[in-house]
Design a protein around this nucleic acid. Structure first.
Length: 568
DNA sequence: GCCGTTTTCGGCCCGACTGTTTTCAGTCG
């Protein structure tokens, strides 16, 4: 069992302990053990009881618990707690804004033991009447429940990627490369996937179904399947999967129709025919040939969203999209100076090992106490270390940055002379997230207008499927970035992907550059760059408009020049 | 339950934010 799953179970244990009012210091032990595991970079997988106890915060009993987890997937104490807990309450624990204490109150006073009962109690106004609760709490519970319901059965692209790619390889093995095609939202590299779809070319659907039944990760739902359409689930995740079987004569038509979004297919051609109707009626050798016949340049699947691509395809002006290999460096990363798992040197070494020319380190600024934000002394210390490492590692270079909190009033988190000591600054909002659109926009614009802001970090603060971002006026933000020559981050963490791809094209139109930033808190975080590239590509991002596609020298000059302009 | 010692028992206790209160409790990152 990996660290992530271990801490997940320990967290559940701690929550249940709170629910059952176990000694608070005992609970604290669990939470501090979790913190220690999260922060450290020691894999617990192969450690025995003795080795576990050497880790700060883990003593005899928690070590025993972890050993049990490794051996059985659960532990005795957890099982005991679960026995005393109504099953439905476990789901209630997932609700944002509700902790164990409040849940206990709901359980003991209103006898609520499930999400369903909770929703009813909120709707009837019972919850607001309890001491310690109020109308706002009741309203926010309803909102959370609605948000959760709307996200049922949806997954992050990155979460399903491995299962999808593995099955795709299996399908290719079974049916041949030219007879299998991924379609749907996944083929367009959408950030959220509700269903994965394939198209299989065959005259004999029965034979196809038979072969499919040999694939272990697939479980067919016979009720919803039909003679040409296999429906069911993929893998343990309960991911909805559909496999269409189509004859060779309509394979290309189906590929075109099933890979594009509705908006793309509704786009009219010169004579007014919707593209979808044209694709349906015609006979084509290949997808490329179909676009050509329609008088369009070839549109890659990820652009088939009905945004701007048809107009550009008509004029043969589709951009050459950014590729991962175009990226020369990685900006916006954290180290052990704040809440990262690996040291500055480890982060730099690994970055160099992956073939990049530079690393931008931007730990949290001092206001971010929860993340070990750097006070001014630490900033000085880190910059000295960067200077030393740069001498050692040349021509590789570390740029000294900071992820400065944008404070509630829109100002940055250090006095000007400290801000001036960095090569670049990523300005982001981390606290005070519940704002009106007007307030959030004004706060961001003030930070954008600060001459020290180089990059605007995750502009909406959203966490996909978990938290809506604060509402912002995207146009106003992008316009302000254009005016102040501020780069906008495409935060490549699959939970964020923020700036959203739907705004990338507008930003480029305004000549705002974008930066693909992994926001890495550990070495393997660099691999998220890939999802940032996908996001950029969906918005039509080019190499020329990507900040970190610049080589080390060019970006060094870019940072210097920006700083010179501040002095003037 | 963990830690650290003034060494086997006593202390442990983040800070901002929100919504409830009207000085605080609960939650979150």
């Amino acid at each position: 069992m990996d660290n992530k799953n271990i801490t997940k179970i320990l967290k559940l244990t701690a929550q249940l302990m709170e629910l059952h009012e176990v000694n608070t210091f005992k609970i604290r032990s669990y939470t501090s053990a979790i913190y220690s595991i999260d922060q450290g970079n020691i894999s617990l997988e192969k450690l025995d009881k003795e080795a576990l106890q050497k880790i700060n915060g883990i003593g005899k009993s928690i070590a025993e618990v972890i050993v049990q987890l490794q051996e059985t997937g659960t532990h005795e104490y957890l099982e005991e707690l679960l026995k005393e807990t109504p099953k439905g309450l476990l789901e209630v624990l997932e609700i944002k804004g509700l902790g164990p204490k409040k849940i206990k109150t709901l359980w003991k006073t209103l006898h609520i033991t499930s999400v369903h009962e909770l929703l009813e109690a909120c709707q009837s106004g019972e919850v607001a009447k309890i001491k310690g609760f109020g109308k706002k709490t009741q309203e926010s519970i309803i909102q959370s429940l609605e948000f959760m319901a709307s996200n049922q059965g949806k997954w992050h692209y990155a979460d399903v990627e491995e299962a999808v790619e593995t099955l795709h390889d299996d399908l290719v093995q079974l049916f041949g490369d030219d007879a299998v095609s991924l379609t749907g939202a996944y083929s367009r590299k959408n950030e959220i996937i509700e269903q994965v779809e394939w198209l299989i070319k065959s005259e004999d659907p029965k034979a196809v179904f038979k072969k499919l039944s040999s694939l272990k990760p697939l479980q067919q739902d016979k009720k919803t399947s039909s003679p040409f359409t296999w429906r069911g689930k993929l893998g343990e995740r309960d991911l909805s999967a559909v496999i269409f079987v189509t004859s060779p004569s309509t394979f290309v038509n189906e590929q075109l129709l099933r890979s594009a979004s509705r908006a793309h297919l509704l786009a009219p051609l010169e004579d007014g025919t919707p593209l979808g109707s044209y694709f349906k009626a015609g006979q084509f050798e290949s997808q490329e040939a179909a676009y050509k016949a329609a008088g369009l340049a070839y549109v890659v699947p990820e652009l088939r969203e009905g945004q701007f691509e048809i107009a550009l395809a008509k004029e043969n002006k589709l951009p050459v999209l950014l590729e991962e290999k175009d990226l020369k460096g990685i900006l916006h990363n954290h180290s052990t100076y704040s809440d990262g798992k690996h040291t500055l040197k480890e982060m730099a070494d690994y970055c160099q090992e992956l073939g990049y020319e530079y690393l931008g380190i931007s730990d949290h600024s001092r206001t971010a106490m929860y993340a070990g934000g750097l006070d001014i002394d630490k900033v000085v210390e880190q910059q000295a270390e960067i200077k030393r490492l740069n001498e050692e590692m040349a021509p590789f270079r570390i740029f000294s940055g900071i992820e400065s909190d944008i404070l509630v009033d829109g100002s940055l988190d250090y006095p000007d002379e400290v801000l001036a000591s960095f090569d670049f600054i990523v300005s982001s909002i981390h606290s005070g997230l519940s704002m009106t659109r007007k307030k959030a926009t004004a706060r961001l614009i003030k930070a954008i207008e600060n001459p020290y802001t180089t990059i605007l970090g995750h502009p909406t603060g959203r966490l996909l499927l978990r938290r809506e971002g604060y509402p912002v006026d995207h146009k106003a933000i992008i316009d302000a970035c254009a005016e102040n020559k501020v780069v906008i981050e495409i935060n490549a963490n699959p939970w964020r992907l923020d700036l959203d791809w739907r705004w990338v094209h507008y930003a480029m139109d305004k000549e705002v550059m974008l930066s693909i930033n992994p926001d890495a808190h550990e070495k393997k975080g660099y691999f998220h760059m890939k999802y940032g590239v996908l996001t950029g590509r969906k918005g039509g991002l080019t190499k020329a408009m990507t900040l970190n596609a610049m080589g080390v020298q060019a970006i060094g000059e870019y940072f210097d020049k920006r700083k010179e302009n501040i002095k003037k």
